[in-house]
Write a protein that binds this DNA or RNA. Structure first.
Length: 306
DNA sequence: TTGCAGGGGTCAA
DNA sequence: TTGACCCCTGCA
């Protein structure tokens, strides 16, 4: 079977309990799963990653030498239905990188995270996950999501281990605030509780928000408590294909100031800069810069580049 | 050993 | 514009 990407084509081969994708360019599992866009993928000793998305568990291993990717615990139907889009395989990242590389900073940044792809994740899951991210650390966020899924999500068995799907709004609507608090998300629990209610009663319609322009979508998302500019931008970039979004967290603020603005500026100035400089490709630029900043510890008090 | 700052921001004053 | 905020880790 052959599946078309923009300007290229992927060859798909069925193997025992999975698929081998060949002729896949710009796909590095470490870069994809560790660039900060997702919380539910865990690395194994063999360099593969196992995770839960859209109610399925799969194992992913990329081989950059041979431009191939191995997916385990799936099949062609599921690949066509879920994973082709999830991994954004219809997009030519080579073209994006070429364009962004005209900028010398990005030219360097891209060398570090050359295999990044922006996953098309579920808006509901991103909403709750990024509410949890406020003033929090990645391992803590991952733990809270995991606890919430264990309490309210559907169990999925894979190789003798039980994984849990991210719970739907309906499944979570059965929870009281004191139940949500068991996921140890602290002061964010009350925001999550309210977000569940707003989505469940239709005050917030994520499907609709996905269809409207980026500015309106941001305003709409920010009606949810616990959702500010940064969280709204993450939701839009990681689950609504709004690639002009440039989520500004501490790392992005540091790296933008360090390389481009050369001084401490207000948050608003960073957004204006990104829109001018990167336009509708700002989201891709953000991911390369984020990965680079973290790898190099740029601007951090512990970094060598301060 | 205990204590305290601070973290993928947001909210309220 | 500035602190407080849950929970937890790292570092005196």
């Amino acid at each position: 079977m052959v599946k078309h990407m923009e300007g290229n084509h992927i060859k798909i081969q069925s193997v025992e309990n999975g698929l081998i994708l060949e002729n896949v360019h710009d796909f590095n599992a470490k870069h994809i799963f560790e660039c900060g866009q997702c919380f539910r993928w865990k690395r194994s000793a063999d360099g593969s990653y196992t995770g839960v998305a859209y109610g399925k568990v799969i194992n992913v291993k990329s081989d950059e030498e041979n431009n191939s990717v191995r997916l385990l615990n799936t099949n062609i139907e599921e690949f066509n239905q879920i994973w082709f889009e999830y991994f954004d395989l219809g997009r030519d990242y080579g073209k994006i990188k070429k364009k962004l590389s005209e900028d010398s900073v990005l030219n360097t940044a891209i060398k570090y995270g050359e295999g990044i792809r922006i996953l098309k994740q579920d808006p509901w899951e991103m909403l709750i996950s990024y509410i949890m991210s406020a003033n929090n650390r990645i391992p803590m966020i991952a733990r809270s999501i995991s606890l919430l899924s264990e309490m309210y999500g559907q169990p999925i068995n894979y190789k003798g281990e039980t994984f849990y799907a991210f719970p739907t709004a309906e499944e979570l609507s059965k929870a009281q605030l004191c139940d949500i608090e068991k996921c140890k998300a602290g002061f964010r629990c009350k925001y999550i509780f309210k977000a569940i209610e707003m989505v469940q009663d239709g005050t917030i319609d994520l499907d609709y928000i996905k269809t409207i322009d980026i500015e309106s979508a941001r305003q709409e998302l920010m009606k949810i408590p616990g959702v500010g500019i940064k969280v709204a931008d993450c939701i839009m970039l990681f689950s609504m294909q709004k690639y002009g979004s440039y989520p500004v967290d501490v790392w992005i603020k540091r790296v933008t100031e360090h390389f481009y603005l050369h001084e401490d500026v207000p948050m608003k100035a960073i957004h204006v800069f990104a829109k001018d400089k990167f336009g509708d490709m700002a989201g891709f630029a953000q991911e390369y810069l984020f990965y680079y900043a973290r790898e190099m510890k740029i601007g951090s008090s512990k970094g060598e580049n301060k």
